[in-house]
Simulated assay, not measured.
Amino acid sequence: MNPPLLSLYFDGNCPFCAAEMKRLRHWDTHARLGFIDIADPAFDASEQGLDLHAMNLQLHGRLANGDILVGLDTMLAAYTLAGKLWVVLPLRIKALRPLLSMLYRQFALKRYAFSRLMGYKQVPDCAEDVCRSRHPFLGN
């Protein structure tokens, strides 16, 4: 089996994040994506040459050539590789990128609260106090 073209480092304790990764896995019929849960206690960001705090602030991805993508660039690459470019088409509009990037960073910081507001169920084995202990800087 070939290595993924893009490995996504996501917060598996975040209900919204987990649901989106599940959706991407379903759409990724050519196995171009890899999924790495940074909330897994066995995950060590330093082994990847990355910083866990930074990874919790925005979605990160690693291309097969080793390049790191962050935030909107990661999302654009992931949905494109999964054959769903239309989902992230606004991200390709250069004039919108600064605004969308700012909105994304705010969403990422408050992703647990937004998950609740959007009706996503809590991830099993992730009581809020446990999630907060792993990600204490996340807002409500």
Rank of each mutant, 00 (worst) to 15 (best):
M21L: 15
M21V: 15
K22M: 14
R23Y: 15
L24W: 10
L24R: 04
L24P: 07
R25L: 09
H26N: 08
W27S: 02
T29S: 09
H30C: 12
H30R: 15
H30P: 09
H30K: 15
L33S: 00
G34D: 02
F35C: 06
F35W: 11
F35V: 09
I36D: 01
I36F: 04
I38P: 04
A39D: 15
D40H: 12
D40K: 03
P41E: 15
P41W: 13
P41L: 14
A42C: 10
A42R: 12
F43M: 02
A45V: 00
A45I: 04
S46F: 08
Q48W: 10
G49F: 12
L52Y: 08
L52H: 09
L52R: 14
L52A: 09
H53P: 05
H53D: 12
A54D: 15
M55L: 11
N56C: 12
L57R: 14
L57I: 14
H60S: 06
R62S: 04
R62G: 01
L63K: 06
L63R: 09
A64G: 02
G66H: 06
D67N: 06
I68V: 15
V70F: 05
G71I: 04
G71A: 13
G71W: 10
L72M: 13
L72P: 01
L72G: 08
D73C: 01
D73P: 00
D73H: 03
T74P: 01
A77D: 00
A77H: 04
A78R: 00
A78I: 01
G83V: 03
L85D: 04
L85P: 00
L85W: 09
W86I: 10
W86K: 11
W86Y: 14
V88P: 00
L89S: 12
L91H: 11
R92Q: 15
K94N: 10
A95N: 07
L96W: 12
L96F: 14
R97Q: 13
L99S: 08
L100I: 03
S101A: 13
M102R: 08
Y104T: 02
R105L: 06
Q106L: 00
Q106V: 01
F107A: 09
F107Y: 13
A108V: 05
L109I: 11
R111N: 08
R111V: 02
R111G: 00
